[in-house]
């Protein structure tokens, strides 16, 4: 999966499960940025967007509309959807002027994947 921005330094939280009140940064501050990447919200999804490469003309409207920055773009092309973070809101499917995105039931999509 893509890491959009490389971080300056990684916060070492290998044993954070054991951390008491004295170990944390003051005010629950996280001493690094860009860590939303580590929070995999894809598990919240009940519907999964499926893009039809044939219909899509890389207009990028879905990229601007996606509230979770889950439309992945490389070299001006809409490459695919980051399913580790996509929450399945369906906005991309709504805004796509070419009806290139279809929302599938997540369970069915998983089953299709298994096949």
């Amino acid at each position: 999966m893509s890491k959009t921005k490389p971080r300056k330094e990684k916060w070492n939280i290998s044993d954070i499960q054991k951390w008491g009140p004295g170990r944390h940064e003051m005010g629950a501050t996280i001493p690094e940025s860009g860590n939303a990447d580590d929070y995999e919200t894809g598990g919240w999804r009940s519907e999964r967007p499926l893009r039809d490469r044939e219909k899509c003309n890389d207009c990028m409207i879905c990229f601007f509309a996606c509230p979770d920055s889950s439309i992945r773009v490389e070299n001006d092309k809409m490459v695919d959807i980051d399913l580790e973070h996509c929450k399945g809101c369906g906005i991309c499917a709504q805004v796509c002027p070419r009806d290139a995105i279809e929302m599938l039931n997540e369970i069915k999509a998983c089953k299709l994947e298994e096949k």
């Binding site: 954070i16 944390h24 996280i30 940025s33 860590n35």
Partner: peptide, 14 residues
């Protein structure tokens, strides 16, 4: 020294 302030910290958190 970039930081994240006001992050979510719920069940299973601290």
């Amino acid at each position: 020294k970039p930081v994240t302030v006001g992050a979510f910290d719920s069940l299973g958190g601290w």
